[in-house]
């Protein structure tokens, strides 16, 4: 574009110039090749496709190393999936203790995150004034932004002593699944809350009015109309929350304990799948040892678990949107 100074002066001559040009040359409307545009488009395509390579990379890496693991003489897939002892030193590779610890910590986390997250979502979407919501929501989001290692510290230095003072030092181990699970629940609460709130606020106003018009109270409208109407969105939130809990590493690595332990006792120390991967890879790990390969097999299981959960959740959200859009 011309700057202002020249714009006024050159107007006439430019108009004349355009005319002269069309008069002298025949107009060419043929497609021109624009190499610059093509290069850029190529780069953009590469950026878009890179994510595919990431996924392929994850699958190949996890698959390949797991294959090495399972082709090892000491290991069989059945033993891996059904064994109740994980002690690489003596060649025992049963995933169940790690899996169980993952399930116990996740379950405890869900006991905290699901009811509180849904309760908070109902409060924010059905009760809170716009002003209160404007203050409360960002504060809850701060919880979601705190790094998980900080939650790990919190679990170890606050939650564990708290549990010990309630249930006694003899009952509650310094490293225990309960403290890790409870703190993980607090960490996941904002996720459940914000996804559920999205689902609740997507329920059309007209349904609420219909209920009020029949003489329903606010509570009845919320729990009998709005929550059932938003149910698939809420379940989607729950499923994502479970996936987050299963994949969470630092809280359990710090607070749940180091060392596989096949137990349901929440006050006992036990290592989760993620905690085990973190501990083994944090040590001095030599490539191509069976330890190295074994963490990839655990990783594979972890990846598949979370993938199924996440895909299921997004399917639910999509179905929910189809109903109301």
């Amino acid at each position: 574009m011309d700057d202002k100074a020249s714009a006024g002066v050159s107007m006439d001559s430019r108009v004349a110039g355009v005319r002269r040009e069309t008069a002298e040359t025949t107009l060419n409307l043929r497609k021109k090749s624009r190499p610059g545009e093509n290069v850029i488009q190529g780069f953009l395509l590469f950026c878009g496709v890179l994510s595919m390579f990431t996924t392929i990379g994850i699958v190949l890496v996890l698959g390949n190393e797991s294959l090495h693991f399972f082709t090892n003489d000491n290991v069989s897939i059945t033993e891996f999936l059904t064994g109740t002892q994980w002690s690489p030193q003596i060649g025992q590779f049963g995933i169940l203790p790690l899996l169980l610890a993952t399930l116990v910590t996740s379950f405890i986390a869900m006991l905290v995150a699901l009811p509180l997250g849904l309760g908070a979502a109902i409060y924010l979407s059905e009760y809170a004034s716009p002003r209160a919501r404007k203050i409360l929501k960002p504060v809850l989001e701060v919880l979601a932004g705190v790094p998980t290692i900080v939650y790990g510290y919190f679990a170890l230095t606050f939650m564990t002593p708290l549990l010990q003072s309630i249930f006694g030092k003899d009952t509650v181990n310094i490293y225990n699944m309960a403290a890790a699970g409870l703190v993980m629940g607090i960490m996941i609460l904002p996720l459940v809350c914000s996804m559920s709130e999205d689902a609740l606020s997507a329920v059309p106003r007209s349904l609420r009015e219909g209920a009020y018009g029949l003489g329903a109270t606010r509570l009845e409208t919320a729990t009998k109309i709005v929550v059932p109407a938003g149910l698939s969105g809420i379940i989607a939130a729950f499923v994502v929350a479970i996936s987050r809990a299963v994949g969470e590493t630092m809280i359990v690595a710090v607070a749940a304990g180091a060392g596989p332990n096949f137990t349901l006792n929440p006050f006992a120390s036990a290592e989760t799948m993620t905690g085990h991967i973190a501990r083994i890879s944090g040590g001095d790990l030599s490539y191509d040892s069976i330890d190295y390969n074994s963490i990839f097999a655990i990783g594979m299981l972890l990846f598949l678990l979370t993938l199924v959960l996440n895909m299921g959740s997004r399917r639910l959200v999509r179905r929910f949107r189809e109903v109301y859009e």
């Binding site: 996924t55 890496v61 299963v246 994949g247 991967i277 890879s281 993938l307 996440n310």
Partner: peptide, 13 residues
């Protein structure tokens, strides 16, 4: 999907 993969898996990659 990638946005939901646990971070420790990225570490392994």
């Amino acid at each position: 999907n990638l946005a939901g993969v646990p971070s420790i898996i990225y570490g392994m990659l």
